[in-house]
Design a protein around this nucleic acid. Structure first.
Length: 132
RNA sequence: AUUGCAAAUCGUUCUAUCGCUGUUUCAUUUUUAAUGAGAGAGAGGAAAGUCCGGGCAGCACAGAGUAUCCUACCUAGCGAAAGCUAGGGUAUUGUUUCAGGAAUGGAAUAAUAACAGAAAGUGCCACAGAAAAUAGACUACCUCAAUUUAUUGAGGAAAAGGUGAAAAGGUGAGGUAAGAGCUCACCAGUUACAGAAGUAAUUUUGUAAGCUAGGCAAACCUUAGGAGCUGAAAAAUCAAAUAAACCAAGGCUUGAGGGUUACUCGCCUAAUCUUGGAGGGUAGAUUGUUAGAGCGUGGAGGCAACUCCCCGCCUAGAUAAAUGAUAGAAACCUGAACCAAUGUAUUGGUAAAUAAGGUACAGAACCUGGCUUACAGAUUUGCUUUUUUA
RNA sequence: GACUUGGUAGCUCAGCUGGUAGAGCAUUUCACUUUUAAUGAAGGGGUCCUGGGUUCGAAUCCCAGCCAGGUCA
């Protein structure tokens, strides 16, 4: 399973309660144009990461463009989350995380992918430090 | 051929790899859900704005009245309705043309119209101006009186003046102290009646009245016709929950309180009202939810809106919200530059069947008919500008 | 998804039963003071969100659009 680059319905962050908890207590990493908020799960549900994307209406006004950015971000996350998942399965943790888009311009896929790689690498590092 | 405007139709396609959401078949695990494999499906003409309709759902409904909202030239047609289509009328504006010295008028044509009523009533019309809608007396005009002889007072008059968006019919004659539709002639408009044309809106002719009757209803309003209220976060079921439950007091058929979902009358009502006390829980899932005033090909009718018939099809169903990412190719459009190196203005390379760039507006959220707004480009039709040929 | 308010000076708001667009704060100049503040006086500053319509005349009435809020179980 881990050899594939899946991102199915189960791995999305959906519950309103979980999202409220995440924004109250979560830890943030800033890396322009993104802000990543994450929190370790209290009750494990067998899924390593529940992940969500948010694009604020104030920054991007048209629904078409918001959808486009979300799709690009999800695609970049899908292709680049392997290292993080390996680390978590080794340490036995599960995370909730939310990625918020902060730019007013529509970035291309290659730019977004580069930023996602950087931010996921930083997250992996900080998690490893915590577990030690 | 070309310029612009309007209307209608369409509004990118294919391949590879990796993914997303439903449906369905098979297999495995295991016991009703996962995982894997296969098949097949997966945004629009506006999905948008939420400006009008309808379905559907809940609540209400003996009945009457009021309020509120919507519609508004005529005829015919289409449609479930909203509304749309065709033709005609009237008004305004533009263009062309004819008449004329001009003002202006006639004809044709195009665009636009929230195009019922201002003679049912109320209200408003700033500033300016004497006066702004029952007319009115500032200057100038006329008569009389008084005297200080160029002023004052009383009256007449609505002709002249300037102002203003708008000054209360126009021209001429008579008339008079001066004047006035005061009277007359011609012209213009208004209302009533009658005749003619037309299904009608309306047009036109005559007679009478009379010069009154200005504008604003996208001011209140009147007339005619129509509309119960609330919206899928509606609503139902399951799970959870003693929760419209429990305890105490008051109120009672002479109707208090409550209901009648904007109000009044009327009607209904005792398990249903009022006050206080104690006191939780949920933030999920499924249905609603996609077979319908449905879509497509063909035929028939109609100028059109649209209707009928035959055959075929099942055609998104997400919910922090799927329908994508990367690479390559094709199609269409614009088209004279583009790439690399350095010495930064030169050199080298690729380039006219090309280099390079671009492909709009925009994302379903219960469904659906219209309206409005946004839109690269293509095609068709009508009108139009300029040029060429006959 | 459904419903509903508002947009006026640099800022916060009046004006919205149609008739020259105003207040407070800020800003500019002057006076007072050794100087500043405070105080007093005088000014400047407006596409009344945009486009059309009704009207003699529109910030105000009507229509369409743009932008910014608010409510719901």
């Amino acid at each position: 399973m881990t050899s594939k680059f899946n991102f199915s319905k189960k791995e999305k962050l959906k519950s309103i309660k979980d999202i409220e908890q995440l924004f109250k207590k979560g830890i943030s990493i800033h890396q322009y144009p993104f802000r990543l908020t994450y929190l370790e799960k209290k009750e494990k549900n067998g899924v390593l990461i529940n992940f969500g994307v948010s694009v604020p209406k104030k920054k991007i006004k048209l629904a078409v463009n918001r959808n486009l950015i979300k799709r690009r971000v999800r695609e970049a996350y899908r292709l680049n989350n392997k290292a993080l998942k390996n680390m978590l399965s080794n340490s036995g943790k599960e995370l909730n995380m939310m990625l918020i888009y902060g730019s007013e311009q529509i970035l291309s896929y290659s730019e977004i992918e580069g930023k996602i790689k950087v931010i996921l690498y930083r997250l992996t590092e900080s998690c490893e430090v915590d577990s030690k």
